[in-house]
Nucleic acid binder design. Structure first.
Lengths: 348, 348
DNA sequence: GTTGGTTGTCAAAGCGCTTTGGAATTTCGG
DNA sequence: CCGAAATTCCAAAGCGCTTTGACAACCAAC
């Protein structure tokens, strides 16, 4: 069943049927309903390829999937993708995913752009001075960045969360609770979010004249294993931190294992705040000691990004070019007053 | 630059240029080279949408990505996807990925099929009596299954590894080493591969008149955490197993943590064989005690599946409908002779 | 009763490619 | 040197949709 057949069946022209289907105003409501009913009955579906050819729109957005290990960890990526997908399905859009070595992100992105298969691009895992940005700007294809690129003029469309603010606030809370020795379990140090989160911590500490020693910062890809390992190292420091900031609940999972195995109590001996991407299988309230978190849903970000990107392609706009989402700081049981010094050392 | 302009530039007809580009034999070699050179110089790229419309081929294969947690674990999926992608890029194919709740796999698959965006389908994470199979068969669209569906007549195209054989062989090796008490750390019990692996173990044991008690089987999604947890339970059994079969190196990671923490020695007190999907960041030879494994590369399977699927679409065939890959059994240090009974209990 | 503005519809012209069915040219056996 | 076969190329017809420009038909207004 194609448009021609359908229009013959209805005794209408292809033009009218097409317009009825695409919501143009110049068609009689009665006619439109007749058309719609016929579509129902015949199961007519417009041919995508023909639509693409005629409109020049592919109805798809492209993204590069980092296919190597240790890359912000797959669970986060999958969760984000789910959000994107949810929204895309609603608009009958789809994505084209190009898996690529992180070494060849730029090349993969370029190939995707010129493939003619997509009409918008999405990029994530931004780094400082990200080399994809100049490419994207030169491409004359709509794009949207998840995150930002530290060190590049923010003159591109992005959606980001306020990573610096989140970790600044979290640090301030811990300072108010009397903590003075901090540790930071962070994502890979080349990634933008990790840079900003560290800055947030550092600047909150600086306000109290405190610093964050190198030994108390750990950058790693965000798996629970790494979290455990890094936390173990922190605990062996002569002046071990009592307050931990953690870039992901996944990292926190490992870190808490280390804390427990060292015979320490979370929320008493060690306070911990983790960033919560709202991963459905890792709820901070379900931890044996519920976690204090900074929260921002990764899936919601995916939905929003799909919305903006699809809107841009369909010229539904205008959308704000740049969005910076605030995070929530949610206090649960993993944070408490700093242990008194004598108590702290008396236990050893 | 489109075909018409290019052909005018060359003083040839569109037909000839098109044929030169698509490798048809009825064009003079000299002409073909002239065309190819012009393509280089002008940077001409055929319009995908027009090709799709004219040929009826979308140049893409569709797949449903399980977007919920606990689903065979993302690392395996990512690794497989990389293989698919590698090969797809080579043929200028791409995938369309539809994220979907595992509850709605069938619906998602159907939507993908009728979307008109793909000309072949790929499915994985097969279950016993998988409901997607009837749908696929009714769809008159090429498809390929990774794995099989226990309980369904194998009259569909698939690529699978010999899961049963792999675990049968592994079990036999452990039997030969004198082990009599076995444990199985397996994937989710509704998944086909898990069913077959269990069968492999059970039938090898049966040959010696042994059985695998329910308490010594653990089905779970394959994360290291689950592996650790399940192994801890095994170790608390009154007659704890000395030989462990493990469906993934990821599970093994956790299991070994449990073994070590119990003060036991891998390869002495406990022997373990894991299935190795050749995940690049989890090499069995790099474990502190190198792992004995059954090996089959997930990425290679991805490459092969893409090859077959693309070949089918392009009618490059014929390909074998069904492939069953043998696994390799590679002995390293995690397997050893069964501990003597007195030794075993004397240590406690 | 003519003019002018809506409204609802249509025929036809693309969009950029592939492919069919010839037609022109060359090659070659007899 | 001729007719048939092989080689090389082309014009034109789609593929199924969107969109332009025009045209009836209808209404209100002067």
């Amino acid at each position: 069943m194609n448009l021609k057949q359908l229009s013959e069946l209805l005794g209408l022209s292809q033009t009218t049927v097409s317009r009825a289907l695409n919501g143009y105003p110049e068609v009689n409501e009665a006619t439109r309903e007749r058309v719609l009913r016929a579509v129902q009955e015949t199961g007519y579906r417009p041919n995508k390829a023909a639509q693409r050819l005629a409109t020049g729109k592919a109805g798809s957005i492209g993204l590069v999937m980092p296919s190597a290990p240790g890359h912000y960890s797959d669970v986060h990526f999958g969760e984000f993708l789910t959000g994107l997908g949810e929204e895309a399905v609603r608009h009958d859009f789809h994505f084209v995913i190009m898996p690529a070595d992180p070494d060849d992100e730029v090349g993969a992105l370029r190939r995707l752009a010129i493939s003619g298969n997509v009409d918008a691009l999405f990029v994530a895992y931004m780094r400082g001075h990200d080399p994809r940005l100049p490419l994207l700007k030169s491409l004359s294809m709509p794009f949207l960045v998840h995150g930002r690129s530290f060190g590049t003029e923010p003159d591109y469309p992005y959606l980001d969360i306020d990573n610096e603010g989140a970790f600044y606030d979290a640090t301030r809370l811990l300072l108010q609770l009397g903590h003075t020795r901090f540790g930071l379990l962070n994502g890979p140090d080349h990634l933008d979010f990790a840079i900003r989160r560290r800055n947030g911590v550092v600047s909150a500490l600086a306000e109290r004249g405190l610093t964050l020693p190198e030994a108390c910062i750990s950058h790693m890809s965000m798996t629970d294993e790494h979290g455990q390992f890094a936390m173990e190292r922190f605990l062996q420091l002569p002046e071990r931190p009592t307050a931990i900031l953690c870039s992901s609940t996944v990292l926190a999972l490992g870190a808490i294992r280390a804390v427990t195995q060292a015979g320490l109590k979370l929320g008493e001996d060690i306070s911990l705040i983790a960033h919560d991407d709202v991963l459905p299988h890792l709820k901070p309230e379900n931890f044996s000691v519920p976690l204090t978190t900074t929260r921002s849903s990764l899936r919601a970000a995916g939905v929003r990004i799909a919305q903006r990107l699809i809107g841009t392609v369909k010229q539904d706009g205008p959308f704000p070019e740049q969005e910076l989402w605030k995070t929530e700081l949610i206090v649960r049981a993993s944070t408490g007053a700093a242990p008194r010094e004598d108590q702290n050392f008396g236990g050893v």
